[in-house]
C-alpha cells in the first residue's frame, strides 16, 4: 500500500513550503480586511513550522523525522529561511527548531481546571517575515521544488513521499502551473508520488473551504486550477482528517481555500497522536 512508509530518523520525510511573495500579497486576506495576505502567509508558515517542531519534540530534544525547506517566490525564487538558516534548502527539523529569527512571548486563554479561565503565556517562534514584492513565478517555484525534492528522494528512496505545500493567491505570471505540478507529482519514492498540496488565500471575503472533493462550487478559476494541481489525500491522511472532524471523501484533495494547512502536520503519522483538542 502506498503512503504507508514508516517515518523515522533513518528514513525521514520532507516538507517543502512554497510561499508566494508577490506584490499582490499586499492585498487584504479573506474576511479579515485588516490583515494582508502576506501576513496571513507568514503566520501560517510560522505555525506550520512550530507544529512540526512540537510534533517531533521529546524530552531529550527534537527527533529529525522531517527535513524542512521554505522557498519564496516573488522578485526571485530562492530559499527563504533567514538568520542562521539563510540560503539553506532542506534542513533537519531540529536545526529549524533551534534557529528561529526570534521567539515572541504571547498569551492564550486556558481552562484553569476548576471551571475558570486563565491567561497563559507561551513562546511563539518566528522564522518567516511577510514579504510582498514582484511577480508570481509559480512555475519556476514548482520546478525548483522538483529539483530539491528530487535530491531528497535520491538520498531517501524508500521514504514517505515528500510533501510540497504551496501557499499562494493563485495567479501565476510565468505560465500554466499545472504542467510543472504534474511533473512534480510524478516524482516518486518506493512509497508513492510526491504530494503537492495547495493553500489558496483570496481577497474575497468568502468562507473557508477545506479538502474539497470536486472543483464545482469553488469560487473562481484560480481556486479550480489549484484544486486540479493538488494531490488526492492518501487513505491514511483521509482517516486522520476524518478523526480531526473534517468531512473528507475518497476524492478529497490536499487543497484549502482561505484556510491554512496546519492540520496536515497533525495528519502525518510518526506514532501515537494526541488529540487535536489538546493543543
Amino acid at each position: 500500500m502506498p503512503y504507508a512508509a514508516d517515518i523515522s530518523r533513518t528514513n525521514p520525510t520532507c516538507f517543502l513550503f512554497l510561499v508566494d511573495q508577490s506584490s499582490s500579497m499586499q492585498e487584504p486576506f479573506g474576511a479579515t480586511s485588516d490583515k494582508k495576505k502576506a501576513q496571513g502567509v507568514s503566520d501560517a508558515i510560522n505555525r506550520l513550522l512550530q507544529n512540526m517542531a512540537l510534533k517531533c519534540a521529546k524530552s531529550e530534544g527534537i527527533r529529525d523525522y522531517f527535513h524542512v525547506g521554505v522557498v519564496g517566490y516573488g522578485s526571485r525564487v530562492a530559499p527563504a529561511f533567514g538568520g542562521a538558516l539563510a540560503n539553506r534548502g532542506l534542513v533537519p527539523i531540529s536545526e529549524v527548531a533551534n534557529n528561529p529569527l526570534r521567539v515572541e512571548e504571547r498569551t492564550r486563554k486556558m481552562d484553569d481546571g476548576a471551571g475558570g479561565v486563565i491567561d497563559k503565556k507561551f513562546k511563539f517562534p518566528i522564522w518567516f517575515e511577510p514579504i510582498a514584492q514582484g511577480k508570481t513565478p509559480m512555475c519556476q517555484a514548482l520546478q525548483f521544488a522538483h529539483q530539491m525534492t528530487s535530491a531528497f528522494v535520491g538520498r531517501f528512496p524508500n521514504c514517505y513521499p515528500p510533501l510540497v505545500i504551496n501557499v499562494t493567491d493563485g495567479v501565476a505570471t510565468d505560465g500554466n502551473p499545472e504542467v510543472p505540478a504534474v511533473g512534480l507529482r510524478k516524482l516518486a519514492t518506493t512509497d508513492g508520488g510526491v504530494l503537492l498540496f495547495n493553500a489558496h488565500l483570496s481577497a474575497k471575503p468568502l468562507r473557508p473551504v477545506e479538502f474539497p472533493d470536486r472543483e464545482d462550487g469553488l469560487p473562481d478559476d484560480y481556486a479550480k486550477l489549484l484544486f486540479r494541481m493538488s494531490s488526492p489525500l492518501p487513505a491514511k491522511l483521509q482517516e486522520a482528517a476524518r478523526a480531526d472532524g473534517f468531512a473528507v471523501t475518497p476524492q478529497s484533495r490536499g487543497f484549502v481555500f482561505n484556510a491554512d494547512l496546519v492540520a496536515i502536520v497533525r495528519f502525518i503519522d510518526i506514532g501515537t497522536k494526541v488529540a487535536a483538542t489538546v493543543r
Binding site: L54, G61, I62, N98, F122, K123, T272, V274
Partner: peptide, 22 residues
C-alpha cells in the same frame, strides 16, 4: 519531576501540554 528541567521553547510547550499514555 519535570518542573525544574531546563528546556528550549518547544520543550516548555510540550511540558505544558503534559504527557500521555495508554
Amino acid at each position: 519531576d519535570v518542573a525544574s528541567v531546563p528546556l528550549a521553547w518547544y520543550g516548555e510547550e510540550k511540558r505544558d501540554d503534559g504527557a500521555f499514555a495508554t
